[in-house]
């Protein structure tokens, strides 16, 4: 099958500690994969190798079928792999559209030579992408500090998507949100899936992962211990896999 993103036998060591041990997994276009595991299982390390923060010590990464080296976060962004971290990394003092365009600001020339920020363009484009995602934010001129947690998450997602993301990694997207907002973010994930993106979600909220993920990959102590189709398993089995109790049960 043609995975959007695939890692084969990927390994990462920190000194004597093997954080990720020989892990292989892949994600299809239009598929949501939940990456599960207890703290220290190696989920974040695995993700950070894909997003260019860490370099793997072994194994290969394939993107759109081609073997790829991702040396830094800019490489990943350039390929179309966007990562939304738990802390979102938005500049709270800037407004919504400035955050969406941060680092990639649209400029226009005045007096034929001086390049200045093109606020109108960025505002209009941001409106479009938010509309496409069915996100409502009262005013895009509001600073991020005035938005709710769910709205911030939405801004972080729209920032990724505006830049033609083909693959999205979400680290605990619902952790800091209220119940209604969690639901909205999950709806957004489903919408993105329907638009053909490959998505990895890391979350401790099993309920959320079960409601949105097509497939589950479970890690423990750096190793991939299981892979399940979501509808063929249940939270009890998965919890067992996460904590390593399934051997006791059987």
């Amino acid at each position: 099958m043609g995975y959007v993103l695939e890692v084969q036998n990927i390994t990462k060591r920190f000194g004597g500690l093997v954080a990720v041990d020989n892990v292989s997994m892949g994600v299809n276009a239009g598929e949501v994969v939940g990456l599960l595991g207890d703290n220290g299982a190696g989920k974040s390390t695995l993700i950070k190798m894909v997003s260019g923060v860490y370099h793997p010590d072994g194994g290969k990464i394939f993107f759109l079928g081609k073997e790829t080296r991702i040396n830094n976060p800019m490489d990943a962004l350039f390929l179309g792999i966007e990562t939304i971290y738990q802390d979102l990394a938005l500049a709270e003092n800037l407004n919504v559209y400035s955050n969406i365009f941060l680092g990639r600001e649209k400029l226009k020339k005045i007096l034929g030579m001086i390049k200045v920020l093109d606020h109108d363009y960025m505002l209009a484009e941001s409106k479009k992408v938010l509309k496409k995602l069915e996100i409502e934010i009262p005013s895009l001129k509001n600073r991020i500090s005035m938005l709710s947690g769910g709205q911030r998450q939405a801004v972080a997602i729209s920032r990724s998507l505006y830049w033609d993301a083909k693959f999205l990694i979400m680290d605990e997207p619902t952790a800091a949100l209220g119940i209604t907002e969690q639901k909205k973010v999950l709806d957004l994930v489903r919408l993105l899936r329907s638009q053909g993106l490959g998505i990895i979600i890391i979350s401790h909220q099993l309920h959320d992962v079960f409601s949105v993920a097509d497939r589950l990959v479970i890690m423990r102590r750096g190793e991939k211990v299981a892979e399940r189709i979501t509808k063929n398993t249940d939270p009890n089995e998965v919890v067992g896999l996460i904590v390593g109790a399934e051997t006791v049960k059987r």
């Binding site: 962004l77 990394a89 990639r104």
Partner: peptide, 10 residues
Amino acid sequence: GSTDAALRAG
């Protein structure tokens, strides 16, 4: 506003 945000924005 946020050094992290600036860094991750390249």
